[in-house]
Design a protein around this nucleic acid. Structure first.
Lengths: 208, 208, 208, 208
DNA sequence: GATGAATGAGCGTTCATTCAT
DNA sequence: AATGAATGAACGCTCATTCAT
């Protein structure tokens, strides 16, 4: 509300109470979301709202002031995860490197994300969220597509399917990582090599 | 359970009441499990025990006589799924074909399984179940291992990791299949080709 | 439910489960109502449902199984009070005695009732309840009416108003009784004498 | 309260800021009290503090600056009612008329009061308030007492009890008035006649 | 001093799980 | 053995009261 004028008047440095309050509110929300992430990775994703409130350092009633119900809180957590993902992808500067490195870097980003939001990885995410996720990783998918057009990778499997396969590999990789025993960079390397081999142009001869 | 009576009367060589009762019990259990599977695919995996009981045609409390709690019921469902898996793998006669075909066949089996137990695919499965799953698919893992030993597939990534990557690919594939648009056999073929390429022996030259 | 046949079939001793269950349920309800009355006179009428449940020896959830909400519980308490009132009036055998004694006896009944349900006396009772109360005390009102017709009591104030005035006197009397210091029978006597004097036929001479 | 400032500036003998502030404060309090009375007669006596605040035109929290809690607000409302009562009694000039008229006049005052503060009539008033009420109506009680001493009214029932009985009658009368159908002056007259008859000296002969 | 936000307690509900018959 | 009822934990919500600005 009263959002439009924001950019214009900000030069004056005249933070209105309303705006400040809203900022505070956003800050609190963010804090709660982080606390939720923490609780979830500790107590599991069926932690009670009371637990979340407690860790957030806030009364249960207050929690409900910020998020009308559990689902909405989860949504916000999702949004947060997606924001992290976007930021991670952005910082990874995927466009400037060749495909192999792009894959390696995205894998690292996904690992980091998964590490923070394991429960999300496991959890049943609404269709709209999936769309948003796809949108976020779209840049890399585009790389697959153009690489395919240029004949740099195999053409007998649609690029988007290849990309999904890659994501599946990463997911499995994170599973192993999470269970322990493997080193992150090793795993990144293995994923990358595995996928690159899988994508390599093939001489048509098999019948599988 | 109540095993003692059984042993004593087994000398008669005939269906004792105890044994018959036990059989009936097993039958009821199986019926409940099937009902559960049905409810889950209808209402989703968070269907209430009440719903399950209703579809099973028993009272809620009776449900609990068969399965002490929700988790155990889920476990039983798992066991059922694992049994299906084992049977499927067995019928697939994986040993008699070469690796590529073995992968294709296992993929088909997993697709069929996933189709029946989608909710399981998505759901957070206990560690012990995962072990059992691994045990069931172990034969194929063995194929990976021996193929690696024989130098038939790449050696720079441990066979078990390769196998897990393959499973990840299959999972993603099923996801796409489930969302619709792709043909089962096409997908089997794509998974197989993708993985086979990924597994192909590589000349050591990259640095990823 | 299925109430009518009760007396008839009870000879057979064939208490069906349903009927028995219903009886148990009624019994439990009654117990809860009594507990509520107790809690209310102890902790006041704003005692929490939790307190009521505790004193009832029942879990809060169970309390809600019997009474869907606080209001309904209060209603039931009311009904109970009214039943007590009716029973008290019935046992008082008001018809067989002359008006003065009838008043004295009704006063005693009302005192006893008020003692058990003080909070009700003080509390804001719905219109329908008031109707029921009036219905219960109607017999005595009828005595007022017929006495008036017979010229036994004053005729310059409608009988129903006189009766209401009497109730007001009783209420005040109970108030004093409750605060302590006065003896029950003294108070009954005083109320009766006061009202009887007030009701006595008057020679028309005043101008108030 | 906050007396320090007051003492210092009181030398000037004029409206100090503190004093003025205090006056403003009192004015606001009075406004809130009136608003409360209004809300109560509209929404009933369990109107929320939010409603009261809204009608008062202040924020909920501000309401609490004036009255630390709901009870205190109710108390203030009481005080207001008692003030009205005292004023009414004062204006009624009860001392100058004979007992019958005094009763009639007090009844009118009480009716007017009840009309304005119905919720109070019905509500559970703290003991201290009752004391104040009694103090306010004490003059009439004194009349009862002296009349009894002089042998003008019955002596077999203590004067204070008679007085309370009278109040009970008035209360009932107001109840009927409030429900409608009766005229105020008729009711005043009936109350008065009823009570006067009740108070009339009696020849000792009954045994009730 | 006035206010928005926070708090805690209670309400009414659902649901997995347990009890008693 | 099967069942209706009981239980406890959590949810989502309202409201009187308190806090921090």
């Amino acid at each position: 509300m009263s959002g439009r004028g924001g950019a214009l008047s900000s030069g004056k440095g005249l933070e209105t109470p309303t705006r400040r309050a809203s900022a505070i509110r956003d800050y609190a929300k963010e804090a709660i979301i982080q606390a939720t992430a923490e609780v979830f990775s500790t107590r599991g994703e069926n932690a009670s709202m009371a637990e979340i409130a407690e860790v957030s350092g806030v009364a249960r009633a207050t929690l409900y002031r910020y998020f009308p119900n559990r689902e909405r809180l989860l949504d916000a957590l999702m949004d947060s995860a997606l924001a992290d993902l976007k930021k991670g992808i952005c910082q990874a500067d995927l466009e400037s490197v060749e495909l192999g490195d792009a894959i390696a870097r995205l894998t690292r980003v996904l690992f980091a994300l998964s590490d923070k939001y394991i429960y999300l990885v496991r959890s049943h995410v609404g269709k709209d969220r999936i769309k948003e996720f796809r949108l976020a990783v779209r840049p890399v998918l585009e790389r697959f597509i153009s690489a395919q057009r240029q004949g740099l990778i195999r053409q007998d499997i649609p690029a988007d399917i290849c990309f999904n396969f890659y994501l599946g590999v990463t997911r499995s990789a994170f599973g192993m990582l999470f269970e322990g025993g493997d080193l992150l960079e090793d795993m990144v390397s293995q994923v990358t090599r595995f996928v690159l081999s899988a994508l390599a142009t093939v001489e048509l001869d098999g019948d599988h």
